[in-house]
């Protein structure tokens, strides 16, 4: 399992979004969804309802339905997710699940940074678990290194930083984190930030990861690769299994 194979695997799971609206509402949605791994269809509904809605299907399976306005909120990065998924309605959980595994193809650096911030915030709030982060450039590493130093010094989060070739040495020598300096070429292609809220070490005695339903709700990952100047393709995911596999791919 590599980060590249995780990206390909997610890209293969295309979903269909059918937009139902009484008028032309949502016609521009295809453009907005072009950044995601979603195929868009349009259908008319009788105009009793003023509100457009969308139905998401995964092959022949119904995955979820929501109003168009709700969908647009969820599609805007950075990603917003309720803190405690157990407390939210089952339908909202389903919605997150269905929008989780979508690949974006045209995010820019600003949007990726916003999403990275969301994941880092979660690590701060959770205060434990594992955070592994890799950079595609020395400049990005230099800009962010201080933040990860603080995170490692202030919380119990086990921070691993994958230092890109050419970065000044000794940058993180005195920080309580693990700096990997021999990053192989395959890994160096990706901008990644992986977090889980537990880590085996963080669990109470006698509890295994399999028992742990709540903390795995904190699992999230962003994996992206540059496709051009300020253009990236990649995935963010909250799927605990997929996040676990991403950890395996980098460690």
């Amino acid at each position: 399992m590599t980060l590249g194979s995780i990206l390909s695997e997610v890209a293969a799971e295309e979903k269909t979004v059918v937009v139902y609206s009484p008028d032309d509402t949502g016609e521009d949605l295809a453009e907005r969804l072009a950044t995601r791994n979603l195929h868009v269809d349009h259908r008319k509904i009788p105009s009793i309802s003023a509100d457009a809605f969308v139905v998401v299907r995964d092959g022949s399976r119904f995955r979820g339905a929501l109003s168009l306005s709700d969908l647009l909120v969820f599609l805007s990065p950075p990603i917003h997710r309720p803190e405690d998924l157990d407390s939210v309605d089952a339908a909202y959980r389903a919605l997150f699940e269905l929008l989780d595994q979508t690949v974006f193809v045209t995010l820019d650096r600003r949007q990726l940074l916003a999403t990275s911030r969301e994941i880092e915030d979660r690590a701060w709030r959770t205060g434990r678990g594992r955070l592994h982060v890799g950079f595609q450039s020395v400049a990005a590493f230099e800009a962010q290194a201080g933040l990860y130093r603080d995170l490692a010094a202030t919380t119990d989060v086990d921070v691993h930083v994958y230092v890109p070739a050419g970065a000044p040495s000794g940058y993180l020598d005195d920080a309580p984190l693990t700096a990997h300096t021999d990053v192989d070429e395959d890994l160096a292609r990706y901008w990644f930030i992986l977090f889980d809220g537990h880590g085996e070490a963080g669990l109470p005695d006698g509890q295994t990861l399999a028992d742990d339903g709540t903390e795995s709700a904190q699992s999230c990952a962003l994996i992206a690769e540059a496709t051009g100047p300020d253009r990236y393709r990649g995935v963010w995911t909250y799927d605990p299994d997929r996040v676990a596999r991403a950890f395996e791919a980098v460690t």
Binding site: D51, F53, R63, A65, L66
Partner: peptide
């Protein structure tokens, strides 16, 4: 189901 979701929020497979 989608129509109802415009009143009552997102709906899932259930």
């Amino acid at each position: 189901v989608g129509w109802e979701a415009t009143d009552s929020g997102p709906a899932g497979p259930d």
